[in-house]
Amino acid sequence: MGLYWSFLTVLALLAITAPTALLFGFGGATAARSHVAPLRWLGKSYIAIVRGVPDIIFFLFFVIAIDQGLEWARHQILCPDWTEAIRQGNDFRVCPAAKLPLSTAPQWVHEVYGFATAVVTFAIVFGAFAANVLYGAMQAVPLGQLETAGAYGMSRRQTFWRVLVPQMWIYALPGLSNLWMILIKATPLLFLLGVEDIVYWARELGGSKMARFSDYPHGDWRLWYFLGLLVFYLGFTKISEAVLERITKRLSRGQATIGAGT
């Protein structure tokens, strides 16, 4: 049963993460071309952190960092008169009321919380990638269009929403579809974040079963489970490729790009 749920977990992760990451990316890209210097630095450095560092480090880092950050904040608010230090040697101790999720919470809350931190982590990392793509796309919109909008008396905000944003998608699409493929291929990393995903179940169910402990004794089947996963991912990327191809064709109607012809 868990295995089938875990496929849904992966699909749910993709469905939630993709728009969230796009939102993060949009924010990052907008910040990076802002006229307020600190905001611009923030956006640029957000984009820049993805370069030079393996993303798996971000995944491992953010999950703990988010968890500890939230608990620390709740600790400051909920238990103001707690005197002991939070970091005691090798321990991270907050007062019981600040624990996330509360130790009295039912099991599903723990699972949802784990999943939520994973989603936020993915969104942060892929948001940076998306910001990079969207930033490039915003630069690619012909400057003449923006100047024309200005000449018509549109304010900066109006130009941004009415001219720049509608036009940038076609430039962003190749990058974004590439990103979607990468996102699909990053989902097995959920396993590292402690979510019981398909990799977890493939390992669990595939491992050898003894007749004494299980109704269905079998040898080591992990090979076949992972072969199944490989085929699943291959099929998934293949289908996505076909769908994205159609979207590109659709979006490039009436655009002066190479993709528009034929």
């Binding site: 291929k185 097995p188 990799v199 992972f226 996963l229 490989l230 991912y233 291959l234 990327t237």
Partner: peptide
Amino acid sequence: SPLFIQFFL
């Protein structure tokens, strides 16, 4: 396919 799965397989 993901490199991660390739390693496992």
